[in-house]
Amino acid sequence: MDSGRDYATKAIETNGLGKRFGSQWAVSGLNLEVAAGQIYGFLGRNGAGKTTTIRLLLGLLRPSSGSVRIFGHDVSRHRLSAARLTGSLMEARATYDNLTGRENLDSTRRLLKLPARHIDRVLEMVAMSQFADRRVGHYSLGMRQRLGLARALLGTPQLLILDEPMNGLDPDGIRAMRAVIRDLPISSGVTVFLSSHILSEVQQTATHIGLMHDGRLVLQGPMSELLQQVSPELFIRTTNLPLTIKLLQASGYQPVNDGVGVCIKLGSSDAEAAVTNKKLVEAGIDVIELTLRQATLEALYLQVQTAEKQVA
C-alpha cells in the first residue's frame, strides 16, 4: 500500500473490538466497517462508547479484545503506519494559547517533518488564513475548532477522525465546518469518521452512519437505506381534535396528541396522507393543517433507542 488510497481496503475495520475498564465493558463486540471515501457519522448518547472507540481507533487505548485496522494496518502492531494515514481532532482546546495559530500548526508540521507550505494549504482549507498570526488565546471556540481541523489535515491524511467537531459552534461555524467536511472526500479523497450529538448535522453531512448503544454497535449502513426503515409522519390540525382522534383510531392509527394537533405514523406510501385527508373531510372535520414529515435521523435514532430499551 503506497501513496494512493486503496478502495478495496476499508478505511476502518474493527473485528470484535472491545475495551474493558475494570469489570465494566465500555465497548464490546464492535464490528465497524468504513469504506474509503465515506463520511461516516458515529452516533450514540453520552456514555455509549463513542469516545472510547475513537481512542481505540487512534491507538490511544489498547483493545481488551478484537482488533482495529486502518487501511489494513493493525493499530496495535503497526500504530505508526496507521497514524501516518490518519488525522484527528479530539479536543478543540488542545492548542497552545500562548502561541499563534500558525505556530501551533508549525509545531505539528515540524514533528511530522512536512514542508512549510502545508501550513498555508490547511489554513486556506478551513478559511483561517487571516487569523493565523493571532494568538490562539484570543480565538473563539469556532476558530479553535477550525484550527484543530487544520492541524488534523496536516500531512494530507487519508482518514480524518473527528470527535464532536460541531461542539460549541455557532450557526455560522456549523455551516462552515459542514461545508469543509462535506468537501473533503470530493476535493481530497479523504474518508471522514465523525462523532456528533447533533443528529440534524450528521444527517446533512454523513453518507453512512453507525449507532452505538451501551457499548455496542446496534445499527450501521448507508444513511439513505437506514432512513427508509423509518416511517414518515403526518401532522394533522383540525377544528375538532377529539373527533379527529376517534376517526384516526377507527382507521387503525395510533394518533399522538401534542395539544395543537395529532401526529400519526404512515405506512410505506405517502398516498395515505391524501386518503386520511379525504376521510376527515368526509366526516365533516375542517382540516387546518396537514404536514407530511419525512423520515429523519432523529426519528431513526429514537426508534432504535426505544427498541434497545425494550430488549434490555
Binding site: L58, L80, S88, M90, E91, A94, T108, L112
Partner: peptide
C-alpha cells in the same frame, strides 16, 4: 500542565511519531 491544561496529550500521542 502545558499539555495537561488544554488536554493536548491525545493529539500528540496520536501523531505518527515515536
Amino acid at each position: 500542565q502545558i499539555e495537561h491544561g488544554p488536554r493536548a496529550w491525545d493529539h500528540l500521542l496520536a501523531l505518527p511519531i515515536q
